[in-house]
Amino acid sequence: MDRLEAMAMLVSSVEEGSLSAAARKLNIPVATLTRNVNDLEALVGTRLLIRTTRKLALTDVGAEYVATAKRILEEVDELERRAAGEFTTPRGELVVASPVQVARLRVLPVVNQFLALYPEIRIRLVQSDRIIDLVDVHADVAIRVGRLRDSSLVATRVGALRVVTVASPTLLDKYGWPETPEDLRELPCVVFDSPSLSPWRYRSQDTGQIYTIADVPRLLVSSPDAAVDAAIDGIGVTFILEHDVHEAVIAGKLKYILQDFEIEPIPVHVVYLSRAAMPAKLRRFIDYAVPKLRELLAEFGRIPSA
């Protein structure tokens, strides 16, 4: 048994949720993977996995062992990449994480341009509107929208995204223009279920304090595109990032409302884990992406509501 190989199989099994799924990912027979995991448990002298018909679970010892195994495998991988010249020559796979819509509108154009410049680099773009743990998904760098909480990350601010409230002309003709956020309680609302945008927040004109408006949505959706489409159709008012509605506003399909009550734009950062030595591929990407993203995020200006 190759111990490192068996550790990698164990980690993959846990990440994939089953031995068969891990075997498919690694392109090896299930019997081979099972034998290696069993041999690893025999070597350790205790059970690491609890196998059920539905999924895998870790024993207490297994959870600690897998966490340590991940760290060992990452250190070995880094040593091999250093020996292969990846720390001096930009090559290999780079994993970039980003919110879905930010990835589509802002990150992907930068990624495409970067790949054209560095033919020996491959990029895996992980798109999710949930906060992604860089270690869990083995990401090299991430674009984060919102306030940063993890102090272990190195962060570079690249801009901010304005948060706006919009409604269709048809809906405004029917209900009238709201003068304050409290007026939204009388209007149907379309809510995009996002950590950065829930609950709806506004700034008091009198005190400058931030307060929230919580209401039962007429429609709750899990993507910004769905929220925008529903708002265009007159289903309700929605609270969204400006770049998601920019084209609809320009086309006259939506109107900005309650602009005087808007909160400060949400910051956007490029973040990565602090490490003793940074691979050339990551350094080149950061050096290239930061100014490009700053340029793209600076495009939007304040558009009058009428």
Rank of each mutant, 00 (worst) to 15 (best):
P199H: 03
T165C: 11
P267Q: 07
L4I: 11
L161V: 12
E264G: 10
S223N: 01
L94A: 06
S152D: 07
R47G: 10
R218D: 05
A8S: 11
V100S: 06
V14E: 10
E5L: 13
V290D: 02
F300M: 15
L94C: 01
R294V: 00
F300Y: 15
S20K: 08
R201A: 10
T238Y: 07
E15W: 06
R144Y: 11
P267C: 11
D225N: 13
V111N: 02
V137F: 09
L33K: 04
I232H: 06
P291Q: 11
L33G: 00
L48C: 02
V107H: 01
R275S: 01
L219Y: 01
V126S: 00
I266F: 03
L184W: 10
A21C: 06
V158T: 00
V216I: 15
K281Q: 06
V11T: 07
S151W: 06
P199W: 13
S18P: 03
L10S: 05
L94Q: 02
Y202W: 14
L49Y: 09
R144Q: 14
G62E: 09
R124Q: 11
V166I: 03
H243D: 10
K253T: 00
R51L: 13
A42K: 14
Y65N: 05
V270I: 15
R218Y: 12
S305C: 12
A280D: 09
E242G: 03
R104Y: 13
A22Y: 05
V271D: 00
L48W: 07
K253M: 08
L258F: 06
I213D: 00
